[in-house]
Design a protein around this nucleic acid. Sequence first.
RNA 1: GGCGGCGUAGCUCAGUCGGUAGAGCAGACGGCUCAUAUCCGUUAUGUCGGGGGUUCAAUUCCCUCCGCCGCUACCA
Length: 660
Amino acid sequence: MPKFYLTTPIYYVNDVPHIGHAYTTILADVIKRYKQQRGYRVLFLTGTDEHGQKIEKSANKQGLTPKQLADSMVERFKQLWQTLNIEYDHFIRTTDEVHIKGVQKIFSKVKEKGDIYLGEYAGHYCISCENFIPESIEETADGKRTCPDCGRPTDNRVKEKCYFFRLSAYGDRLLKFYEENPEFVTPRSRMNEVVSFVKMGLRDLSVTRSTVKWGVPVPGDPQQTIYVWFDALSNYITAIDYLNEGKRFTTYWPADLHIMAKDILKYHAVYWPAFLMAAGLPLPKKELIHGWWLKDEKKISKSSGNVLDPHILLKHFNPDAIRYFLMREASIGADGNFSHEGFINRVNTDLTNDWANLVSRTTGMIEKYFANSFNQPAVYTYKEEEIRGRFGTLEKTALDCFDQYQFNRGLEAIFEYINYLNRYIVEAQPWNLAKEEANQPRLAGVLKTLTRAILSVNALLAPILTDTAAKVRTIFNAPGQDLGWHDLPEVFSILPGMQLFPRVDSKVFFTEVPQEDAAQQAGAAAPQGDAAQQAGAAADAAFSLPTIPDAANVIEIEDFKKVQMVVARVLEAEKVEKADKLLKLKIDTGDGTRTLVAGIALFYKPEDLVGRKIIIVKNLKPAKLRGILSEGMILAASDANNRPYVPILPDDTPVGAILK
RNA sequence: GGCGGCGUAGCUCAGUCGGUAGAGCAGACGGCUCAUAUCCGUUAUGUCGGGGGUUCAAUUCCCUCCGCCGCUACCA
């Protein structure tokens, strides 16, 4: 029996589970069930990433230990997976002993080899993103930098000893590997991104932190903590007992499939293979990269407040509806769009009208015309042969699609066949056959053929529609979900009267669900929510930009006075060549003119600003941008997407006036 | 700015290795009654993003422009 080892990323416990987590995990579950049907012994791994400063901070804020915070979030994830009928085989937590020791083992191994060395890193560190800010981003006057990922100013300048991974030594080997395994990353467009990233040159990667305590300690140097990606990525091997290199490890590694969203591609397709090469371990066979779910065409994010909570959907739908919609509507690689309208439409049309109704009308007739059981001979015609033949074609198409993880296409083909069966009923007109006793065998032939076709299709749908498929098997008294054309015993009976898939009332759906969604987003649900939910909300709050300064952020008036802000008039403005976002401004500050570069070109045209009175920070240390010396900073408000809004003062504001 | 991708019916998308295009949904009309007011049939609409080129012929190839998306650089 061939093995198949597949993984989802481990989810960061600072996040409440959302539709994106659900999608990745459902996709993995569908693949697991499908592979099992195809005769693989599958190991399906998921889990949680629980380390890092962010967790430490969140936990402190709530008076919890990081582990307690993680525990509550883990429960939340596990509950959701259960509700969605996710059958993972193992749930790894980065706080598991076997993981911690396993990470230390890889670390030591790579260090022995000389690919981890002690160095010193001085740089700005974004706690929120757990990333150093690149050197290329220059400092502001107060010695801060803005994190390019989240736009937040960095808290602190970190200068520390830390261990580096010699990533720079792996560029050529990685490129060679990609060349020899062009299918390593799917879809191909993502593979291209990886290749071009590596071709630009790789820098060594710092893999430990002395400033972070909540994590895996470096063996032999407990001052240092192994940090994010080295820790997190290792879960794929520590979970299967890399520590002892036990049977599970030798059986299942290398992984057959890592599944993830596009935002963590680089780590999985560049860092992870390099780590493994350094540790002398085989590389995973394939990485499947999917897009993000958009809600009503907009990116889902906490800052824009449109997080899609799977729990709300699950209150109104059975899990199959969600599983089906997500598999049917997204093509791997592209972003999927989640709209309530699209969801209800897809579910009601396909699942209720087409599939459930096909089963319902078939069982209805068997009940009505044969009192639920067959024990008489049946007559078949060429038409029934055709139905069987077309199922063969369908199955081949569907399995081909599934093998390439194109579930949307496979499902499309399956539903085409379901429609064909609905048409067959109209053509055969069983209700007319039923009118004459002489037609009984023919009628039996039609209904038996329908039963066989339904059971055959049901097996194809089973990996996706788990509960529904089980219901169909119960109705027709047919256990087993093997692929292929299903046979029937000479004599058999069915168990009708079960509603396969309830139709969703769109009125209820359109009023109740958006309300709950909105309530959730407004945080109104928090008071009666469980501890984990509050933990999640608190964690969110801790990392959104504060609107009211908390005690730690209060400054003295003296601090404020250090910043000299004055009114300036824009004399000239032009776009900086070879830079999308930069405008070069020549301004009059009352006591002379100076040049200033501002990253607002996406939203402001030069002519929007010429002649206008704006506010600038006058005593900012000059910085070179694209070769132009910028002597000061224009003041602009910035929204969650970093879109700038430049305050324009009244025309009669005197140039050089001081803001205080 | 560099690299890559995309732009096809109201919506979501398929397709054309060059001979003016389709599937589902939504819409209109009709039919059936076994079925969860379900199902079946018929049906509309498109300068296939704009412009230019190659060709007997382009939506399909080439160039260019516009718009959108991804990676990347830039955001004092």
